[in-house]
Design a protein around this nucleic acid. Structure first.
Lengths: 196, 196
DNA sequence: CACCTAGTTAGATTATTATCTAATTAGATG
DNA sequence: CATCTAATTAGATAATAATCTAACTAGGTG
């Protein structure tokens, strides 16, 4: 879906009156007069909002005698509501640990090895699998595409654990980072070994 | 959830720049400078948008050295995205068929008995269960709380099927409508017999 | 045809807001 | 301490939009 449509949808729903209208129409079609009565607004105002709702196809209308009945297109609403979360979960390749849905196990391991506030690594795990989970987590807090001097990287790692040398070496061994002339850079996420 | 929060969420997402920011942060945390560079906007503008995103708790931040890293709260995003569709499907009592999640079977029956555009009933089903599904559907297009004269009701039904007399009678028998002095009114949805 | 009811359109008012430049604050570094 | 970079705050501008009143359009009805 084009991003403009998604923006237009959210802009349309970013108004109390229109959310109320949608909520009323969810109970069945209504005439304009009925909406004006319930919401205590004038007919032109209702007309204005219905125009906006029709522009993004959330509402359709049908003439009946000399009234117009407005219907909710709830499939359209479902469609747009799902778009944003889907857009985000599709970014999987280069996701950080934070954005990934952590499995219960990952979460538990991270909680075990980091302090409660998440700022310090208590010890470097001995088991390979757990060590990788911890390394990936720390690496995910680096900015992708940015170059780090060795000193800079050391300092960053040291905010988590004093043995920055070991962790920095592990970053290279695990293909998490790339080094050239003492300049370090995060490798693309796809290069990192899958954990399981 | 309060309706104001829902409106605030949609208002916040009703802006291209903020949707772009969310989409970038889905790939991992970023510093303000990085966002400004990618989006080709000035730092104050980025700051402004991040403030809005933080107000609705879609983003959190964490200082690291002299930079600030911004993180997406994707659980919050999921939460708000689901709110609107849920609000609508909770209106079950007085819902129209249109708004109910139709079971596959209902959907199939309606598709069988109505023309493709849904405007005409091909034949009145003989089986009680199927007949009720069709009647409920037509009734759901009437306005609840409104009084209909007999002529008016006939005309409405006739837009679906020429034998309006039979259908009108069925409405009364099935407790779908109530009649007094030739004035018809939709009964509350709860009075309608459950289909299964 | 005259009149009534429902809806839309036009235009005015007021409020909100996205963006910029300039100034300020906060850390880090030498 | 002087300097650099990153971020926020202040203030201005220009655009958007929610709401109203008044005028107009479109079907129905007597």
């Amino acid at each position: 879906m084009q991003i403009e449509k998604l923006v237009a949808f959210h802009k349309t729903m970013g108004d109390v009156t229109r959310i109320r209208i949608i909520s009323i129409l969810a109970n069945g079609p209504k005439r304009g007069q009925a909406l004006a009565g319930i919401l205590k607004l004038t007919a032109p105002t209702i007309s204005h909002h219905l125009t906006k709702l029709k522009e993004v196809n959330l509402v359709r209308d049908r003439r009946e005698k000399n009234s117009v009945y407005y219907y909710l297109n709830d499939d359209v609403l479902q469609h747009y509501s799902r778009a944003l979360p889907e857009m985000i979960s599709n970014k999987g390749e280069s996701n950080t640990m934070d954005n990934q849905k952590l499995t219960g196990e990952h979460k538990r391991i991270l909680e075990n090895f980091f302090t409660a506030d998440g700022r310090r690594l208590k010890t470097i795990p001995a088991q390979r699998k757990k060590k990788l989970i911890v390394l990936y987590h720390i690496a995910s807090l680096l900015e992708s595409g940015r170059k780090y001097e060795e000193k800079e990287l050391n300092a960053f790692i040291q905010t988590f654990h004093d043995d920055y040398a070991t962790i920095r070496r592990e970053f290279i061994i695990g293909s998490i980072m790339y080094r050239e002339n003492s300049i370090y850079e995060l490798n693309p996420r796809e290069m990192w070994a899958p954990i399981d």
